[in-house]
């Protein structure tokens, strides 16, 4: 290694450290904050918690609404994922494998719909949800979240299906499968990675969705994680330590998903936007 190359290598490593530090720094600080006592929060330095305390976590876990909020979010995200995966896969199948006439137009329309700003549709949605008596219900959130995630699902899965060799579907049909038989027994199993990538993306989307959840929820009965964090109760001063602990607890599922499935997530995200 020449001196010049050594310098370049050093530059690259420091750039990498900078990037990783910038990405994880705020999250790390939140973690550090969550272990500080109230008294330590208003002193800086010391940088590290002195003494370490788990009081914030204890306070958050003892809060009865925590479990409610986590369950709500899990139900909403889980059901929305299932719902948009089923509907999205069927639609994508018709658009790519079955080559419905006007598929290009339908895909373009779906893409256009996905670019609607939620704020532009939230007032009628609120009126309709109120009219149907579905305010403060998980059902309304599931319905809205799965629809808003549908365009992404349709695009990602249509791209995955299109990448399958066409003979696969044809062979299944020749062998006597019905259209839906070929779909369920051949096309779906072969696109399992694509379905999985879509599922993770929709799950993260529904877990994080804020505007609709904020408008539709009234009480803790249907409150989801983002709403709970945004409305974190504080009597006089903002309880930063407890907010930090609650954020850590409530985003751990997402962090775990990212660490286990980063390749799938990346694959899904690029599939959803590139091949257009």
């Amino acid at each position: 290694m020449t001196l010049h190359e050594g310098g370049l290598w050093g530059l690259r490593v420091s750039a990498l450290v900078l990037v990783v530090g910038f990405a994880i720094g705020p999250i790390a600080w939140q973690l550090i904050t969550s272990f500080k006592t109230d008294a330590a929060l208003v002193r800086l330095p010391p940088f590290w918690p002195e003494p370490w305390t788990t009081a914030n976590y204890e306070a958050v876990v003892q809060e009865p609404s925590l479990l409610r909020v986590l369950m709500n979010t899990l139900i909403v995200a889980g059901c929305s994922t299932a719902c948009s995966l089923v509907l999205g896969a069927c639609a994508a199948f018709s658009l790519s494998v079955l080559r419905i006439r006007g598929a290009q137009w339908i895909l373009a329309g779906v893409l256009a719909v996905s670019m609607f700003p939620p704020i532009a549709t939230v007032s009628p949605l609120y009126l309709v949800v109120r009219f149907l008596g579905l305010r403060d219900s998980l059902l309304a959130l599931i319905l809205l979240d799965s629809t808003f995630a549908l365009p992404l699902g349709i695009w990602v899965m249509a791209n995955f299906f299109r990448n399958l060799p066409p003979e696969v579907y044809a062979a299944a049909r020749v062998d006597g499968c019905s259209v839906s038989g070929a779909f369920v027994r051949v096309v779906l199993p072969l696109s399992a990675p694509g379905l999985f990538a879509t599922a993770i993306l929709v799950f993260i989307f529904a877990w994080n969705e804020f505007l609709l959840a904020l408008t539709i929820t009234v009480t803790t009965a249907s409150r989801t994680v983002p709403v709970a964090i945004a409305m974190f109760p504080g009597l006089h001063e903002i309880p930063w330590g407890e907010i930090a602990a609650a954020s850590i607890v409530m985003t751990t599922p997402i962090v775990v998903l990212v660490f286990f499935f980063q390749r799938r997530i990346i694959e899904g995200l690029t599939m959803g936007s590139v091949k257009g």
Partner: peptide, 12 residues
């Protein structure tokens, strides 16, 4: 690690 900021809720 680089994906984390994208994945955690905006509210958080």
């Amino acid at each position: 690690i680089v994906l984390l900021p994208w994945a955690i809720p905006t509210v958080v």
